[in-house]
Design a protein around this nucleic acid. Sequence first.
DNA 1: TAAATAGTGTCTTTTAGACATTATCAT
DNA 2: ATGATAATGTCTAAAAGACACTATTTA
Lengths: 245, 245
Amino acid sequence: MSEWQSEAEYLEQYDARRYDWPLVSVDVVIFTLYESRLQVLLIKRGEFPHRGRWALPGGFIAMDEDGDLQATARRKLREKTGVEAPLLEQVGSQGNDCRDPRGWSVTVLYMALIAWAPTAEFLEGVDDARWWPVEKVADLEMAFDHASLIEEARERLKNKTAYTVLPVHVLRRPFTLTQLQHAFELLMDTQLEKKSFRRRILNAEVLEETGEALLEGGRGRPAALYAPARGSERHLFARVFGESA
Amino acid sequence: MSEWQSEAEYLEQYDARRYDWPLVSVDVVIFTLYESRLQVLLIKRGEFPHRGRWALPGGFIAMDEDGDLQATARRKLREKTGVEAPLLEQVGSQGNDCRDPRGWSVTVLYMALIAWAPTAEFLEGVDDARWWPVEKVADLEMAFDHASLIEEARERLKNKTAYTVLPVHVLRRPFTLTQLQHAFELLMDTQLEKKSFRRRILNAEVLEETGEALLEGGRGRPAALYAPARGSERHLFARVFGESA
DNA sequence: TAAATAGTGTCTTTTAGACATTATCAT
DNA sequence: ATGATAATGTCTAAAAGACACTATTTA
């Protein structure tokens, strides 16, 4: 069956372009917290297909620049937000013959969590991007299957929040436990019991107290400040949280 | 920037083949239980690249046959095992510029769980495939990065077994609770407490007793027989299992 | 002082771990 | 009866839910 004698000979004559391939892209759902809402960054498409619709930051792999898929996702995130080292993880891939009008296409979906910063700082030179509250996405004219990709990432985010400390990544540090609880509640879309929350987080030793209490613009007792401890990203709780609500 | 007036016009002239694309493949780690060991199905490659090495069942998307990625995975599984409706779920994607000597390549990885059946029944017409115990894979000459893909799937399998009833899928039904416990122990690679195991599974109401007890070749008290209840695939335990061992 | 926010005490509930005990079969 | 395997009883431990309570700040 093989017409070639050796691997080297085979590779010599191999030409991918002779074949039809599915399109391959990488898309990133970038989540942040702003004005007490979970928001995602969307781009208004300037090119066909789906020109004028809202889309996820993403696109094709730059085969000369990107060493791997994660690098592509990291590049897309950097181009649109300037953020260099966010929490970034793969959600999964979608591929079928109808999601892109150009033909069979596969997208590898990532999600990123970043602390919010004023639009100007993030979007210098980027005038086609803006934050949208996740619950508003359903009302937008979305490109491709990006609305359902966002849902998929949002579901993953909700699930993982129930047994990790993922929400630390949408806060600027240091933060208070109350702020962290709010972040958990928004990402999980449920109310949490204050005492249970603090007990769980504190016992897990995933935070370290930073400086002393103090700092705080408002009234009321000043809160202690915390930052994630080393290795906290990898902490897995044995039990999920917030089942009752 | 756009030279075209409409989406239709753009699509008219679009030709994917003008661009360089990464290779895209789908690979499937097929797990089963046989002779009290967790095994994976591997194929001896007959073609370049990596001719003669062991590889996962998988390959390119048939853009004319496969409606989506899952369909490709299902087709690969069917071709090698004859199994039509297994547990099949996506693990994730790997993509970089070095995993395939032909160039930048992306693979979408699936895992499948099936009940074992004698080789003849499965492999009629397939003489290049055989089951290997997972722990032996490290000693084989593996193609591409398939050894690490197997590890990734195996890790996922272990993790999910701790909060689902995934192992029901590697057993022929009906099965006894003791058999199910053995399946859990092999997939999790840990010992489980009998009473805890039974209490957990039975309280979750994910099984239904099938017929009566009886049936059993051996000595000792005959065991009750069970089959998965409807919807059991979706059952998620709030707490992981088998942390102590 | 009151209002506001941070933080604790403590009782209940759920579920896993440990391991001893009982049940039912073949021989 | 003995051995083997299935199934249960029951105590302990860990961690979440509920909610009342105390602590520390500003105005």
